[in-house]
Nucleic acid binder design. Structure first.
Lengths: 391, 391
DNA sequence: CGTCTTAGTTCACGACCTGGAAGAAGGGGG
DNA sequence: CCCCCTTCTTCCAGGTCGTGAACTAAGACG
């Protein structure tokens, strides 16, 4: 049971946070609109906004005609108040991007990595951090934080288990912290992509959603009540390893009949191969070829894939009753662009009527490069939560 | 995005709530222990507790020797400060129970119903309410609230869809409110049983858990971050209709391969019949007989059932990463009493290593009569949330 | 009986929001 | 140019709240 006292100071911080979050998330707003939305008194809004402007977090941004009197002055979070950096750690590449608070990319640094050892990754993330700071001309002190996305289980800023990288118990955040004064946050890659979609992509406005990612494998990010749900120990969302065909195909996780073994590109191509299809070397090219073919066994394999994916979606619909499911990942997008309507209809065959009627199934809007963007929101989340207080 | 101002009054209510909740949930505590747990100052604790005692919500309950100085005075929520009533609406019976705040049953009223029309249910719940109030000798004004559990989807105190009762869009709470001044809360039966287990049974202490119920069918209650998770529109937790065998057995919901069709007593007995077993009329007796038989095909059917159930549990483990799964429902308890260890082991075959290692799988402790108890906690939840403010 | 230790209480203080009133700012219309 | 209207801003009295420090309470021990 989470019990937390409230002090008279928390009140002000909380109200600053309410105002700042409203301004950030609900676009430029006037003070007058803020009093309505937050139900704070006009006096308090004026007071708090003045403080935020004095500190530079918020700035006035033009005005808009009012209902016949003095025009309303619009307020926005000053995009250049501080900057944030997001990093994506992949198997073959480290990408680091620097954003202003409006999440415009100001600089980018990619670095290929041969063997993703923790040490090498730390080195390249820190190098990338220096590079983007230097090339954007931003003062290091103006960088609010560094968010790092890693594909693996992340608990308390430490990478606990990352199979694709072969990592186990790597205290990534503290390793990075030794090389920089900028606050470091580490989180799971799928969650970060989900976060990007929730804030800036197809998830906008939803509070209970699932971002389902299908690439070579399959994973998801769960969003419950407006914030990411991580379960008891940060590993919630392993949607790809849900048993969907009892005693079915062997999955690379060792179990039988996982969804991933049927809808992940690797599994799909393997099924195609077993059905007599020929598969080119490059996984992505092979997948595109499969989707474009209108001959057997390709058509059956694709149709089956949609069916399995639909069952996987239906399981989400029934179990977590989301208002939206956002399909992404490179294979997911390829499938979705062509078969979204079929997929929606198929979900209806497996899901319960009521929750099915309440869910909308849409595609990711940000492409697959949004991971660093999502990671960069981590420091922004902190800023908004703390009402604009900087370190 | 949920944004809410904080006023100086919210602060006190919130702190009262923190203190009251601690006292209620963490047993008798001294003021001194409260200062530690809540991180409020000793002055504030003293002040707030004095207020709560003056209002009668809290009372002193003996003292305990301190570490060498003045003894600590223990505090508890006064069990007889107010009373709460819980009602369980079943297909064939309405049960109403009155509890004190320590959740001791003070009176009970059962009433068989022939056809569960909303009108008849309302009538019997209200009759039961009068009966338990009269037979316990409690003043009606001392009854904090009435919680009603219905098996079906409940949104905003209205029953939206209850297939077993044949109800659709029944505004149960407002119908009941016409017959009593006592505040009425309505919620889903599985969630209420889950709530009872979380507070007083096998779920104590867990914040992320699933209470999985297997009877004739199968359902669950999800608990995320210490409170019940209902999804976007209150129908989360439909675990029984998760596809587990793609293109498998027909389920009564219409879909193919639902978990319920394999592990619900109805589905299990049907599978037994198809395998050549003979099944007596009464479902429960038949199920017990099946479990007790050590001949084929009974043993295979039971072993398979454990396997399917394990896959269903594994899907929960992977997707929501709970710290605990509590198995209940009459069929679930029968299975669990005999095969819990096998079940645990089987879950390991389907689940990912890490989340599997973090979950404990246990049996419900309260039996199947705890639904009314769970429903009765609804007004208590409100009392604790509001810091002991009564209507 | 005095002293030590821990538990709980009292009180002045500063931080905070609110409502109301008065006024300044910024535009439009006559 | 003046008046009107709406949007802020400023100010103040009124009230609530948690806090730290000083203080009181209550038992143990010698």
């Amino acid at each position: 049971m989470e019990v937390r006292r409230t002090t008279v100071r928390d009140m002000r911080r909380s109200n600053r946070s309410v105002i700042l979050t409203s301004i950030y998330r609900e676009g430029p707003l006037s003070r007058q609109e803020l009093t309505v939305r937050t139900s704070l008194s006009a006096a308090s809004v004026s007071n708090l906004v003045a403080e935020l402007i004095a500190e530079g977090v918020v700035e006035e941004a033009g005005s808009v005609e009012s209902e016949g009197g003095r025009p309303r002055v619009l307020l926005r979070v000053a995009p250049t108040f501080r900057y944030v950096v997001g990093a994506e750690v992949g198997e073959t590449r480290v990408r680091v991007e620097l954003f202003d608070l409006a999440m415009n990319v100001l600089a980018r640094a990619d670095h290929p990595i041969s063997s993703p050892t923790p040490e090498e990754v730390v080195k390249h993330v820190l190098e990338g951090l220096s590079t983007v700071i230097a090339s954007s001309g931003v003062q290091p002190s103006q960088v609010l934080g560094l968010g790092v996305a890693v594909s693996g289980v992340v608990e308390d800023n430490a990478v606990v288990d990352a199979q694709t990288l072969g990592w186990d118990a790597v205290p990534l955040a503290s390793m990075l912290a030794e090389g920089t004064d900028i606050p470091v946050h580490v989180d799971n890659g799928a969650n970060m992509l989900g976060q990007a979609e929730m804030w800036f992509g197809a998830g906008r406005g939803a509070t209970d959603a699932v971002v389902a990612l299908v690439g070579s494998g399959a994973g998801s990010a769960l969003v419950a009540g407006g914030s990411s749900y991580r379960g008891a120990r940060s590993s919630a969302g392993e949607w790809g390893h849900m048993t969907i065909v009892y005693d079915g195909r062997q999955c690379r996780c060792g179990a039988l009949g996982c969804l991933e073994a049927y809808v992940g590109a690797e599994g799909v191509l393997d099924r195609y191969r077993l059905a007599g299809g020929t598969v080119v070397k490059d996984e992505e090219a092979a997948f595109v070829e499969l989707l474009e073919s209108d001959e057997e066994p390709a058509t059956t394999v694709v149709a089956d894939t949609i069916g399995y994916l639909a069952a996987g979606f239906a399981n989400l619909v029934n179990l977590v009753n989301p208002e939206r499911i956002v399909l992404g990942g490179w294979a997911g997008l390829l499938l979705g662009e062509k078969y979204l309507d079929t997929l929606r209809a198929e979900v209806g065959k497996h899901a319960l009527r009521r929750p099915y009627a309440q869910v909308s199934i849409v595609l990711c809007e940000l492409g697959r490069d949004a991971v660093a963007l999502g990671a960069a929101t981590l420091p922004v989340v902190r800023l908004l939560r703390d009402g604009g207080a900087v370190r």
